[in-house]
Design a binder for these strands. Structure first.
Lengths: 344, 344
DNA sequence: ATTTTCCGAGCAATCGATTCCGCAATTTCT
DNA sequence: AGAAATTGCGGAATCGATTGCTCGGAAAAT
C-alpha cells in the first residue's frame, strides 16, 4: 500500500511499458493499441492512479486554473457572481483560485502577483474601491495573459469587460417612479468615481430631463451607500426637501437605511414616498413593503465573464481584440414603489 | 522584451551564474555571498522575474494550495466563512481553490478528485445535504492529506472538525425569551436529520424543561426554514396556539417569514410576541424591529478551520490526532425580543 | 608553512507528465 | 515481391525550480 500516490513511472514498470506509452494510453492522444490502452487504464483504476496536475501543467505550460480577484467574497453580489464563475469554470474543466482585495489597491496588487506566480491561465477582476490606477494590470497584458474585468471595470476601451447596463437599469427604475406619478424624486447616489454609481446618477438625471423635470441638487445626496449612511442621507434629504415623493437609491442597502427614517417621519411607503433601489439583494423580499429594485443578473455575469475569458484563453496567438459584454438588468417591481395602485 | 516571463535560467545566463546560485540567492537559503545575492535580486527586479510556482511546487512536493468544498458559495453563511478561510490562508502564504458541491454528493466527490489531482496540501469541507456516507473522504485519509470539516460535519469521532455549539446558542436564545417573561414559546424547527437543527430543537426543549415548563407539541412546527415555509409555519402555529407569546426559530429566514404573519394578525412585536432567530444574517438589521438572533461566528469559523488545517499540514509525519473545535456562538439581543422593556 | 575549515558557486539529478523523434514490425500498395 | 506507408512503442529531452554533492580557493588554525 503505497502511501504516496502512484505515478506514471510506477504504472510503466508494473506493465513493462515506458512512461510515454502510459501517458498516451491515459490521454488517448497519439498512436496506441486498443489492447494496451485497456490494460493501462485498468491498472490505473486498480491503483487509483491520479495524475499530478502540477507536473502536467508545468510541462504543457497550461495550468488549467483561472484566478479571480474580488473586493470581498461575502455580500450577496460578489458571492452570486462567484457562483456563476465557479460553475462556468468547472464545466470547462478549469479550477478557480479566489482572492479578495478587501477593497484595497495594495492587496489587489499582491493578489495579482499571487495569481501570476501560480501560473493561472486567465484572470477575472472586479476592481477594489480604492484602486485609482490600473498600472499593475499592465504586467498581465504584457504577458499576454487573458484578462477580463467585471462589474467594476476600468474606463479603458482596450480591456475586455462584462458589465451591467447600470444606466438602463437606473433609467427604467426612475421611469417607473415617474410613471407612478412621482415628480419630486430624490436620489441617494454612490461615490462618483465609480463608473457604476456615476451611470446610475446619469440615468436619474436623464430620465428626469426626458420628462421636462428640473434637476434639483437639493434632491440629490451622495454617500457610501451603507446602511447608516443611507439613514443619514434620508434624514438630510427629508430636511432639505420635505416635499419629496420618491427616492431612487443607487443600492438596496441605502434604501433599507432610508425606510425607517421615512416611517419615523410619518411617511407611508409607497403612498407618500415611493422607493426603488438597485441590486435585488435577498433582503429586498424581507422588508415591508418589499422593495422595488433592479436585478443585476449576478450569476449570468459570472458565467459570461468566464466564457469570455475562456474564449480568450482558447485563441492560440492571444491576439484577441478586447471585447465588452453589456448585460441588461431587469427592473423588479414590488410594493415599495406602487404608489399609483396604493394611492386610491 | 520577452513575451514569456523570465526564468531562473535566463537570470543565470545573464549574470554568468548557474541556476542553482540564482535559486539560492532568491530564496536566501544556502551559502551565498551578499554581493551575489544583491546582484541577482537586482536583476530579478529589473526583469520583473516571477517564480514559476508550479515548478517549485512539483520539485518540493508542496503546492502551497488549500482546497475548499462548500455546498454553495452564495448565501451569507458560507460566503462569510469563506472570507475567513481565504483571509487565514493568504496570511499564511497559501492559495485557496474553491469548489461548490451544489448540495450534491456526486459533485462533492468530483470536487474532491479535482482538488486531489491539483495536489492541494489540505482540504476543508462542509458536507452537502445529500451526502449520506463519507466514503469518498477515505482516499484523503489514505493519502495522509490533512482534512478538516466545518459546520456540516460527519458524525465520526476520528475526523478533525470545527463546529458551532448550536445547542448553547439556542439554549441562550430561549433562556433570554424566558427571561423576558415569555411562557408560551413556540419553535419553528428545521429538518431533524441535520445535526444543527436537531441540536437547536434539543436546546429549546431543555431550556423549557429547566424552567419547569411543559413541552407542548402544538407549539412546535418543523419545516425547511425558507421564507415561505416560515410564513406558513407561523400561520399554523398561530392557529393552533393563539396564545403564544414568543417564537424561537432555527434560522432567521423563518423569522422573517413569520413577522408579516404576526403583524397581519394584529400582534405587536415584541410586546405581544417576542422573536428570536438564528444565524445573525445581515438582514436581521433591516427588519423592523431588528431581530434578536444568534451569531455563528462565520469568519472565526473560517479562520479557525484554516488554522487547524495548517497546523496539520505543518506536522511533518502527518500523524495528527483528530481535533475538534467547538465555537461558542453569541446571542445578539435586539428589539424583536425585548418584551420586558417594551411592555411597560 | 602546512593542514584544516569554510565559503561561494557549479554540476547534475530530481519532481511527474508530456512529446518529438526514431526504430522495428506489420500492413498496404504498386 | 519489393517499396512504401502505417502502427505501436521506447528513448530521451523538456518544463522551471530546487538541492545534495563536489570542488577550487581563501581564510583560519596549528
Amino acid at each position: 500500500m503505497n502511501l504516496s500516490r502512484a505515478s506514471i513511472a510506477e504504472l510503466a514498470s508494473k506493465l513493462n511499458l515506458s512512461p510515454s506509452t502510459i501517458s498516451r494510453a491515459l490521454s488517448g492522444q497519439g498512436r496506441i493499441s486498443e489492447e494496451t490502452r485497456q490494460r493501462v487504464r485498468q491498472l490505473a483504476q486498480e491503483l487509483n492512479y491520479q495524475p499530478n496536475h502540477l507536473a502536467a501543467a508545468l510541462r504543457k505550460g497550461r495550468s488549467n486554473t483561472l484566478g479571480v480577484i474580488v473586493p470581498h467574497i461575502d455580500g450577496d453580489f460578489f458571492a452570486r457572481v462567484l457562483k456563476g464563475i465557479e460553475h462556468g469554470a468547472t464545466q470547462a474543466g478549469f479550477n478557480v483560485m479566489v482572492c479578495q482585495s478587501n477593497e484595497n489597491a495594495g492587496h489587489e496588487k499582491k493578489n495579482l502577483d499571487t495569481l501570476l506566480t501560480a501560473q493561472v491561465e486567465g484572470i477575472l477582476v472586479s476592481l477594489s474601491l480604492t484602486t485609482k490606477d490600473v498600472q499593475h494590470f499592465e504586467e498581465v497584458r504584457r504577458r499576454d495573459l487573458p484578462l477580463v474585468f467585471f462589474d467594476r471595470v476600468p474606463e479603458l476601451p482596450q480591456v475586455s469587460a462584462v458589465v451591467l447596463d447600470d444606466y438602463q437599469g437606473a433609467y427604467q427604475a426612475v421611469e417607473h417612479l415617474l410613471g407612478q406619478g412621482c415628480r419630486r424624486i430624490a436620489h441617494i447616489g454612490g461615490p462618483q468615481h465609480l463608473n457604476i454609481c456615476r451611470n446610475r446618477y446619469r440615468a436619474y438625471c436623464d430620465a428626469l430631463r426626458a420628462h421636462d423635470l428640473p434637476l434639483d441638487a437639493s434632491l440629490v445626496h451622495f454617500c457610501d451607500l451603507t446602511l447608516p449612511e443611507g439613514r443619514q442621507a434620508m434624514e438630510t434629504l427629508l430636511q432639505r426637501r420635505p416635499d419629496l415623493d420618491a427616492v431612487f437609491a443607487a443600492n438596496d442597502l441605502a434604501v433599507a437605511g432610508a425606510m425607517p427614517v421615512l416611517r419615523a417621519a410619518g411617511r407611508r411607503i409607497p403612498q407618500d414616498v415611493a422607493l426603488a433601489g438597485f441590486s435585488n439583494e435577498l433582503f429586498t423580499l424581507l422588508t415591508e413593503p418589499h422593495l422595488t429594485t433592479v436585478d443585476q443578473r449576478c450569476e449570468e455575469m459570472g458565467r459570461t465573464a468566464v466564457r469570455l475569458l475562456l474564449d480568450m484563453v482558447a485563441e492560440q496567438p492571444h491576439q484577441f481584440a478586447p471585447r465588452r459584454v453589456v448585460l441588461q438588468p431587469e427592473l423588479v417591481i414590488r410594493e415599495s414603489s406602487q404608489q399609483a395602485a396604493a394611492q386610491k
